[in-house]
Design a protein around this nucleic acid. Structure first.
Lengths: 179, 179
DNA sequence: GACGACATGTAAAGAGTTACATGATTAT
DNA sequence: ATAATCATGTAACTCTTTACATGTCGTC
């Protein structure tokens, strides 16, 4: 009865309020996506499993002939979530960044191409930071409902990607200026 | 004949100098691990594929009855690496951080547990930054051989994880002080 | 002699993405 | 009408990790 991290994303989002699989995907795309992305291919099978194990309950909320299943976390589910969230066991943070990989090996390419790479990478981080800043206002509203950490983590993302963009800018300057 | 990113990690490391599968694993663990980890289960099959496709050449370097295959990048391989590295196409940077996920959902746990979580997360980032700082001196030596970007990316890692540790510290202070 | 580093490889399991398939409702 | 959004789900595929299996060489 061990749950995967992806299950806890679902449980965590359902702890806020009942949601459909579709809603879970939307909510994840606007929040956890930046440090734990999930897809429909995981959500629907996982919801079935969580229902079978008693961590969530399903309620039919179909309108006319459009199906809609709304899931609600159970006490068992809330306990499992709290157990998981309160365990401070060290877990690695895994990063996979193809562009940084290219930068790492870019001694094999020309100075111009190196700069192009860094500029593209900076643009990416600026875009992510801007996107998160857009989300920030929305989260600040929900914030009042008691989800303080959602806002804090959103700002972590903004700060992190801003730092990355700054690093790119600084390296661009040093490569463009000195070389 | 499309290569996966993992293949480019191997190609990139072989571009520096010929290496065995074991050497590749060691080198990756001391460099790309922080933004692109690879395992033996990928390395050996991938080396076979790269050899079959002509991107690398294998040379027998066995000593006595201990087997050792040293791989060397070919011109075709170097061209493929340069092609890949010089393409600034936007690619997402994917992060999976279980501890941050817990922090995100930690409104469901007590203030004390929240602080424990943040302290553990800070310890993690401090450890990674310290580890990278230890590697930095080593990389600075190779640096002279023309691998400037290796050192830059190493410092990116140090800066990034230091930023993360600082963020944790700041949030700890605000949660511990005001609450 | 035992331990740690060197060395190669495979098989199975697990995690996650993508593409596909289907259809309803709402807004333009 | 038609496009966008809402809505559910599966199957195939890809990528990656983990565990296993095997054996050598140098050093304490």
């Amino acid at each position: 009865m061990e749950l995967a991290n992806t299950a806890y994303v679902i449980l965590g989002l359902l702890h806020e309020r009942p949601r459909s699989g579709y809603d879970i995907k939307q909510a994840a795309d606007h929040s956890t996506r930046h440090f734990w992305a999930i897809s429909y291919g995981q959500i629907y099978p996982e919801l079935k499993r969580l229902t079978d194990e008693g961590f969530v309950e399903v309620e039919d909320a179909s309108t006319g002939s459009r199906p809609r299943n709304v899931y609600r976390i159970t006490e068992l589910g809330a306990a499992a979530l709290a157990d998981w969230a309160s365990d401070p066991t060290l877990a690695a943070c895994e990063l996979r960044d193809e562009m940084l990989l290219k930068v790492f090996f870019s001694d094999a390419v020309s100075s111009d191409e190196k700069l192009d790479l860094l500029q593209a990478m900076r643009a990416r981080h600026e875009a992510v930071a801007a996107n998160l800043r857009g989300l920030e206002g929305h989260v600040a509203g929900v914030h009042k409902a008691g989800h303080h950490m959602h806002l804090e983590v959103m700002r972590y993302g903004i700060g992190l990607h801003t730092w990355c963009a700054d690093w790119c800018r600084d390296l661009e300057r040093r490569l463009g200026g000195a070389d």
